[in-house]
Design a protein around this nucleic acid. Structure first.
Length: 412
RNA sequence: GGCAGGUUGCCCGAGUGGCCAAAGGGAGCUGACUGUAAAUCAGCCGCGCAAGCUACGGGAGUUCGAAUCUCUCACCUGCCA
């Protein structure tokens, strides 16, 4: 089904819808335009937190088909400093990535350095325990108040303070094409009352981000314009999610990030609530999500872009994506397996190397193993999203989903 | 030839009468990883389903009980001749 394209962002058309899924489900394909090129959506954005997609050269990131890279304001603020990235000409110039760039606001670190500390991002509320939310006092590195967040650097313990304005200033210095509002992310175990308070805080922060973004945009005319995405929270509650979407939709954002810990089994539903409240002609980014079933569920309901650390992190730990699921390459059964990492894969690694070789590299702790595995995994997910995009344009989304997921999760 | 020290599970290494199938590493084997405090983390790791069996260089003792004490043999390492 074809649909006329929509525009936003004032004089410049930032997003255009190309085609839509049938049945009013919300899923669509489109194009995001940035000063550094276009992103055909849905698209998987490679994560390069510290201005590097770990273990990969930017050339490889491009070759494997990633259309954009997402870095992190918190990490680059601490090291090397946003001013240095600014002097280098912005994130893309600094890291030698010519394509579109995103930066996350640092909001995620409010959780991961605060209450979360490595344990509460569970996607499954049945295995999560309320105890996990109670941060261990001595390890907690972030504290939230209504005005902002006080952090201790995880690198050297220095105390820093982020407010919506500070995050915008940093992200303007970093100069990514698409930046995110500073938000607070909660866990699935927080009380309903806390979710409400947090959501209201995030709403007020969003407004402040818009104001500061506009001020900085007017001031920094020597740099390419940046698009600001609002981030909506609301955890697992329909009324809160819908409210968040309506509140942010009423503000002057160029697009939206869907954030927070999402119950895996309800991910599609939650995205559906939110997407139905958001303007059709602005892009939606689902923050931090990237497993195959999640990608299908989110795209069906109208998500345009994703970022996820999983392909690269998991690759460094020898877990490999394949059409038949994820497997651990260090397993002894791969010692003499001279086939490619995945049948039918068109990545550089699969074209030239065997499971036995990568198995050896991991056992021998050779760094090339990380690189080759990361290339494969990133390519696998990028291609999966590209295939989904083609299936929407071609009208066979449901068939592709059934075939892909039945094979990837055979036991379900 | 003399004196002193040593020999522990695949490897390194703690343990000097019972709480020892034996700390801790490493290796090996599994498994996790979703806006990256992640080249990280967790579990297993003598044999056996189990009762139990076999183990701390070999052998013989002391003792209710030995990896731990005694004797002896083998090998290794220092120093002295």
């Amino acid at each position: 089904m074809r649909a006329p394209g929509g525009t936003c962002g004032g004089v410049e058309a930032v997003f255009t819808v190309t085609s839509e899924l049938d049945g009013g489900r919300g899923g669509r394909t489109g194009v995001i335009r940035t000063p550094h090129g276009r992103i055909r959506t849905p698209a998987f954005i490679a994560v390069g937190t510290k201005a590097s997609v770990k273990t990969l050269l930017p050339e490889s990131v491009g070759e494997l088909g990633a259309q954009a890279v997402l870095a992190n304001a918190y990490h680059l603020f601490l090291q090397p400093g946003a001013d240095i990235v600014d002097e280098a000409g912005g994130l893309g110039a600094f890291m030698h990535w010519d394509g579109p760039t995103f930066t996350d606001s640092g909001g995620f670190q409010v959780l991961s350095l605060g209450a979360g500390f490595k344990k509460v991002l569970s996607m499954d509320s049945t295995t999560a325990r309320a105890d996990d939310v109670i941060a261990e006092g001595k390890t907690r590195l972030a504290h939230v108040d209504d005005d902002g967040v006080t952090f201790k650097s995880h690198l050297n313990g220095d105390v820093h303070r982020f407010t919506p304005e500070v995050s915008m200033q940093i992200q303007h210095q970093l100069g990514a094409d698409i930046i995110f509002a500073f938000d607070e992310l909660t866990t699935l175990m927080n009380t309903r009352r806390y979710q409400e308070e947090s959501l209201e805080r995030t709403r007020r922060w969003a407004r402040r981000c818009v104001v500061e973004h506009q001020r900085l945009t007017a001031e920094r005319t020597h740099r390419p314009p940046q698009a600001l995405f609002g981030v909506l929270q609301g955890a697992q509650y329909e009324d809160l999610r819908r409210k968040a979407a309506r509140d942010l939709a009423a503000m002057d954002f160029d697009g939206f990030g869907i954030g927070g810990a999402l119950e895996k089994q309800n991910l599609g539903t939650i995205v559906g609530w939110v997407a139905s409240e958001l303007p059709r002609d602005k892009p939606r980014h689902l923050l931090g999500i990237g497993e195959p079933d999640d990608l299908f569920a989110a795209i069906e309901h109208g998500v345009d872009t994703f970022d996820c650390v999983s392909p690269s992190r998991v690759a460094r730990n020898a877990a490999i994506y394949s059409p038949d699921g994820r497997y651990n390459l260090t397993g002894a059964r791969y010692r003499r397996d001279f086939g490619p990492l995945a049948d039918g894969c068109d990545c550089y690694t699969c074209a030239h190397y065997s499971r036995a070789y990568l198995h050896h590299l991991f056992k021998a702790r050779e760094m090339t193993g990380f690189t080759l595995a990361t290339i494969h995994n990133e390519r696998f997910i990028v291609r999966m999203v590209d295939d989904i995009r083609d299936s929407i344009d071609g009208g066979y989304f449901d068939a592709l989903r059934m075939e892909t997921l039945r094979r990837y999760y055979p036991t379900r």
